[in-house]
Every structure is written in C-alpha cells, then in structure tokens.
C-alpha cells in the first residue's frame, strides 16, 4: 500500500515532503497513474498537490501571465485572460486528450512529464515561457528550454518543484497558432505538432516569425536560424515551404507505434503551409 498525502497549503506540503522525501508528486494524475499501471514507475508515497489553492491561480502581472503549476487544462480553456493574451496556449489545451482528461490534467504535469508529444509544450516554447522552481529554501526561474533536457527528463533538482509558469505576453499584432496531427481528432497522442507565432506588417511582411515543433525530437524543438529566413520577407507559399523543409531536415524524429520518422518529417515540411490557410481565414473573417 502506498501512502497518499493531500496537503492544503505550500507550508503543509513542504512539511510532508521533508518527512517523506522519496514521495512522488502527483499533479492531475493522468500520466502518473497510467505509468503506475504499466509498472513503469514504482513509488512508495504519493503527494497530491491538487488541494494547494496557491498553485491553481492564473494571474497577470508585469507584462507576464503567471500560471500556477496545478492549473488544469480546462482552467486554461476557461480563463478570459488566456484567451486574450495567449490564445495559442488555449488552442493547444483544446486539442489535448478529452474533456475529462482536461478537467484532471494540469499544465505543471504536462511540463514535468516532459513528453516530446505533450500538447502544451510547443506553445510554451514558442512564447519563451519561464518556469519558477522552488525548494524549501531556494527559488529560481529558468527558461523552459533549459528545464526539459530529454524525453521525460527535466533538470529538477532534488527537493525542487515547479511552482508556476511565467509567460511573457506577446507584443500587440502578433498571431499564434497551434497545429497538431494525431491518429484521430480527439483522445489523440500527438504524432507531430507545430506552434507558430507571426507578427506581420499590414502588407504581410513578416516582422517576426517563430516556430516550435512537437514530437519530432527528444524535446520540443526550435530552430532560430531557420526562423530568420522569414524576417522582413512577405509571407508566401514558397517561403513557408522553405521553412518547413529546412526545419524538417533539422528535426530528429523517431518511429513508434503512432507513426514513422519519415511521416513526422513530412508533417513538419507541410505544417507552415497551414499558416497560409489560417491567415486567409482570419483575413476574410476579420477575426484575430
């Protein structure tokens, strides 16, 4: 039998954790309990963080959105501030799992599980999210790129936990998108995904373009050199094709039960063209 602790505050959590330092932290449980079932993880004690209300807030401060690590995907979908400031994160959350999974799973869990296929990660990479990591005594803030070091591997030190996520609000007139291909439209593990951010001048000249790629490498990937191709160019099909093809060459996908590495590369090649569709769509509809 395992002990399950349910602290109500950070204070209480710290006390429990120092008493049972071998405990595994559980956020929404949607990954941990599956992994326990499969026998991949063996644990003695579990600390569930779900009752620490301090970790369940979404706030806005100093040009940043602050998201507590135990904020659920559903909260992300429901929060007006996210819809307004970080619509791409909302879009990613909407494509994750199923409603019940979104009611349980959390942003912190998605990050700390560090699956290359995690749905929120490409958006967080794209937005240069930083993570606040706390121990009993220390606090540090690291870019998400430094936090996730490999498939299901993070740079969390012993006694450290993810407190909250800080996401800088993009400057006005940027648009961001998340595209995902899975084996079906819901309840789907991501085969490959792309988050993209564009800041366009009125004549469709690209002032800034960023791309992050999910499930095509050990972690979510960004290729800053490739992104530069877009700079000050007019958005066009050939240009987007070039971005896709160059990025595809830089990815390091694996073949698994969901898809082959080849297919994943093909998707990366094609993903940027979706922006053309999306831009046309938002253009004609007047929506942003």
């Amino acid at each position: 039998m395992k002990n399950v602790f349910l602290p109500n505050s950070i204070e209480e959590f710290r006390q429990i954790w120092s008493a049972v330092p071998d405990a595994v932290l559980m956020a929404g449980g949607t990954d941990l309990l599956v992994s326990l079932r499969e026998g991949k993880t063996k644990v003695k004690n579990i600390i569930s963080l779900e009752r620490i209300s301090e970790l369940r807030h979404i706030d806005c401060s100093g040009g940043e959105i602050l998201i507590g690590s135990l904020v659920t995907h559903q909260q992300i979908l429901d929060a007006p501030i996210i819809a307004e400031a970080l619509p791409v994160l909302r879009q990613a959350a909407s494509l994750l799992g199923s409603p019940a999974v979104r009611h349980m799973g959390t942003i912190g869990g998605n990050i700390c599980t560090a699956s290359p296929a995690a749905d929120l990660l490409p958006a967080l990479y794209l937005l240069d999210a930083r993570l606040e990591l706390h121990t009993e005594r220390t606090k540090r803030t690291v870019p998400i790129t430094d936090f996730i070091i490999g498939p299901r591997q993070t740079s969390l030190s012993e006694g450290e936990f993810l407190y909250r996520i800080r996401v800088p609000i993009p400057v006005p007139n940027t648009r961001a998108y998340y595209f995902k291909v899975g084996q079906r439209k819901a309840l789907a593990i991501t085969i490959a995904s792309m988050a993209a951010l564009l800041r366009l001048d009125t004549d469709m000249t690209v002032l800034e373009g960023r791309f992050s790629w999910g499930s095509v490498g050990p972690t979510v990937l960004r290729f800053p050199e490739t992104e530069k191709i877009l700079q000050n160019q007019k958005l066009s099909e050939p240009l987007l094709k070039e971005i896709g093809e160059k990025s595809a060459r830089l990815t390091e996908p694996i073949s698994d039960i969901q898809a082959s590495a080849d297919y994943r590369r093909m998707l990366v090649s094609n993903f940027p063209l979706r922006l053309l569709q999306a831009e046309k769509y938002t253009g004609s509809n007047g929506k942003k």
């Binding site: 199923s98 084996q183 079906r184 439209k185 819901a186 309840l187 593990i189 039960i257 969901q258």
Partner: peptide, 27 residues
C-alpha cells in the same frame, strides 16, 4: 481508416486503447 491491430513476430503491438485507434464522436 484507423484500426490497425498490429502484431509483429507474434507480439501484440497494440496493447491498449491509446495505441489501437477507435473512432471517437468527432471523427
């Protein structure tokens, strides 16, 4: 369209409903 029950050298590769893809209501 989706259901690809894979068995390789006698090994069942589709072990669960995450890897054997049934259509959902949105498909």
């Amino acid at each position: 369209l989706w259901e690809d029950f894979r068995i390789h050298n006698g090994d069942v590769l589709c072990r669960n409903l995450a890897t054997y893809i049934l259509p959902t209501a949105v498909d």
